[in-house]
Amino acid sequence: MAGPTIGALLESAVAAEEALAELGETIEDEWSYVNDLRQAWTDRLDEVAAGPTGAREASPEIVDAIELAIEEAGLVHDPHRAIDWLSTLPQVVLLAAESLA
């Protein structure tokens, strides 16, 4: 059975970004920054997902890496740390997707 495409995994990362933004925007002073940051990174994830890398089938190693990174983001409950992860998660996920694709 074929594994998921990298694009499908990146869609999951976009969903994780949305969850982090929801938590981060509870810091009222950072509402605009959080939403601008979410937009900037989800645009980038969507762009890679729609490109040649996104169409490739992910190896089990990439699936594991990206799923674990998303899981790690899900462990964040502090809104300040969520803002940090809003920027960190896409860097981690894109590194996995692009280095092993």
Binding site: A65, A69, E72, W85, T88, Q91, A96
Partner: peptide, 23 residues
């Protein structure tokens, strides 16, 4: 990026981080 993620992260399990950054 590994250093940034780990120093920002919640988990302190080295094996988990090795799997997140296999390359």
């Amino acid at each position: 990026i590994l250093a940034r993620a780990v120093m920002n992260g919640e988990s302190t399990d080295a094996d988990r981080w090795r799997r997140i950054f296999p390359s």
